[in-house]
Design a protein around this nucleic acid. Structure first.
Length: 147
DNA sequence: GCCAACGTTGGC
DNA sequence: GCCAACGTTGGC
């Protein structure tokens, strides 16, 4: 799950412990979020920064929550086409697990994995939430725990 | 700042 | 339903 560190970083999550993963306004990303289950783990990825990469680990602690900002006219995430009876956008709540001592950069990930193995490294990929194969996730986790 | 790779919008 | 124009994301 990507976040620009200027907007919300792994340090912010560490301080707050839990956060609503709101502001997702892309159907594909939303659908991936909808498929999440309580107890699932997710990597926290810093995007649009130098260097981008995986910086931490978190857990999904609540699912299928209505994203409140879609009804907030003052929010940049306001969506006038959404309605309360059938909200268009939902989100999950995540909980901090750990911040890695050394981040795993996108550059390192691209050198290690093909885009078939890891969607994240696909050229031009803009999805802010995407699934990861379990065996790849475990491999990455092992690598991160070693450093 | 550039641009690839989308996603969205709206006219038809 | 098609598609041109435009907007967004995010790496480089």
């Amino acid at each position: 799950m990507k976040s620009e560190p200027y907007a919300y970083s792994i340090k912010d999550l560490k301080n707050e412990v839990e956060t609503l993963w709101d502001g997702i306004r892309n159907y594909q990303a939303r659908n991936f979020m909808r498929s999440m289950k309580i107890g699932d783990k997710a990597f926290f990825y810093h995007s649009n920064t130098k260097p981008p990469g995986i910086v931490g680990l978190m857990e999904i602690i609540e699912t299928k929550l209505v994203d409140p900002y879609q009804f907030d006219e003052s929010s940049k995430y306001y969506d006038k086409k959404s309605n309360r009876d059938n909200p268009r956008w939902d989100c999950v709540k995540t909980k901090y697990i750990s911040e890695f001592k050394n981040m795993l950069t996108l550059n390192e990930l691209s050198e290690t994995y093909t885009s078939e193995e890891l969607t994240l490294v696909r050229k031009g990929n803009r999805l802010s939430i995407m699934p990861i194969k379990k065996e790849i996730a475990l491999e990455i986790l092992k690598k991160l725990e070693k450093n």
